[in-house]
C-alpha cells in the first residue's frame, strides 16, 4: 500500500481504539497485523520482539487497573493490555509494509509535506553512526578530564548540541550547493502513485472497524 495512505489508516485506527474499549477490536487488529507481516515475510525475530517488548507495560497496566481502578474491572484491564499490543502490532504492520525512504518520499509527493522537512530529516539520519561515536567521544574525553557524564548531565547534552550545530550547518550548506532550494518544486526519478485499491482497502478497514466497535453483539 502507499505509505501515506497506510500511515493515515494506522493513525485513524490507533486514535479510534484509544477512545473505545472493545477487546475484540484489539485482537482483530493484532491478527490482521500479523497476517500482513506474514505476507511481507517479516523475520521470526520481529514477532518475538513485538510480543516481548510490550509485555512489561501490558502486564503492569493490567495489574494497576485490576487493583486501583474504581471499578476494578477485569474487562477493562484486558482492554488496556490488548490495546498496548494493538499499538505495537500496528507499528509492526507499518514497519514491514514500507521503508523509511519510501515513507518520506511518499509524504513528499503524496502528502505534500514541505521538502525542507523531508530532506532535512533524511540528511540528519546519515549522522546516526557519527552520533553514536560522538556520544562515546564526549564521554571518554570527559573521563580523561576526570569527569563522569550521565544521561542527566547538562554538559553531555550541551556538547551534543555543539556537534549538532556544526554538522547541521555543514550539511545544510552542502545540500544547498547541491541545488536544494527550500520547498521549491523538484522532479522525481521515481513517481509514487496511489493505486485505486488502496482507497477500497482503507474504506473496508474503517467500515469493518466500526462494525466491530459498535456492533450490538460485542
Amino acid at each position: 500500500m502507499n505509505p501515506t495512505i497506510l500511515l493515515c489508516l494506522v493513525f485513524f485506527v490507533g486514535v479510534e481504539i484509544s477512545f473505545t474499549s472493545v477487546i475484540w477490536a484489539n485482537v482483530v487488529i493484532i491478527t490482521i497485523s500479523v497476517l500482513v507481516m506474514l505476507w511481507h515475510r517479516a523475520p521470526l525475530l520481529s514477532y518475538v520482539r513485538l510480543l516481548l517488548v510490550p509485555l512489561i507495560p501490558a502486564v503492569g497496566i493490567w495489574f494497576s487497573i485490576r487493583y486501583f481502578s474504581t471499578a476494578q474491572s477485569v474487562h477493562f484491564a484486558w482492554v488496556m493490555a490488548t490495546r498496548i499490543y494493538a499499538y505495537a502490532f500496528l507499528g509492526g504492520l507499518f514497519t514491514f509494509s514500507t521503508t523509511t525512504e519510501k515513507t518520506l518520499a511518499s509524504l513528499e509527493q503524496n502528502a505534500h509535506i514541505p521538502t525542507t522537512f523531508v530532506y532535512g530529516m533524511l540528511g540528519a539520519f546519515n549522522f546516526v553512526p557519527k552520533i553514536r561515536s560522538e556520544v562515546k567521544i564526549i564521554r571518554a574525553s570527559a573521563q580523561m578530564r576526570g569527569i563522569d557524564l550521565h544521561f542527566w548531565s547538562p554538559q553531555l547534552l550541551f556538547k551534543s548540541i555543539v556537534a549538532a550545530l556544526n554538522w547541521s550547518e555543514n550539511l545544510a550548506e552542502a545540500m544547498t550547493s547541491h541545488g536544494f532550494t527550500e520547498n521549491a518544486p523538484r522532479t522525481h526519478r521515481t513517481v509514487i502513485r496511489i493505486p485505486w485499491w488502496n482507497y477500497v482497502v482503507t474504506v473496508i478497514s474503517i467500515v469493518g472497524l466500526q462494525a466491530i466497535l459498535f456492533s450490538p453483539l460485542k
Binding site: 540528511g123 539520519f125 546519515n126 552542502a174 532550494t181 518544486p185
Partner: peptide
C-alpha cells in the same frame, strides 16, 4: 572540507539523483 558532512542521501547514486531532482532534470 569535511567529506562525511556533505551528503543528504544514504548512497552515492541516490545523492546524485537527489541533486538532479533539485535541478528539475526530467526523470
Amino acid at each position: 572540507q569535511n567529506p562525511s558532512q556533505q551528503f543528504a542521501m544514504e548512497t552515492p547514486r541516490n545523492e546524485l539523483i537527489f541533486t538532479l531532482e533539485n535541478l528539475q532534470v526530467p526523470a
